[in-house]
């Protein structure tokens, strides 16, 4: 297949790759800021999850009121 070709130099005075680099850096910074904002909102407005080992024990082991002998 025959192809004609000619040399074309990019005419834009601004370097698009430099602009892209700046955009990407700003996006990453914005992401970190937004994620921090979500994290801060949750920690500031809600009680913390009970992650103590004792809480896990309560979750997995039966509550104090249960009576094994009541099994039918």
């Amino acid at each position: 297949m025959h192809m004609s070709s000619e040399t074309v130099r990019p005419s834009s005075p601004r370097n698009p790759l430099r602009r892209l680099s700046v955009e990407l850096i700003l996006i990453v910074l914005a992401k970190i800021a937004l994620l921090s904002l979500i994290g801060w909102y949750l920690s500031a407005h809600y009680p913390r999850a009970d992650t103590r080992p004792a809480a896990v024990e309560r979750l997995l082991a039966p509550p104090p009121t249960s009576k094994p002998e009541s099994k039918p």
Binding site: S4, S5, E6, T7, R9, P10, S12, P16, L17
Partner: peptide, 13 residues
């Protein structure tokens, strides 16, 4: 690559 200035020769086909 042409408009980003990476590819110096742009074929016109």
């Amino acid at each position: 690559p042409d408009e980003l200035g990476i590819w110096p020769v742009r074929e016109i086909t």
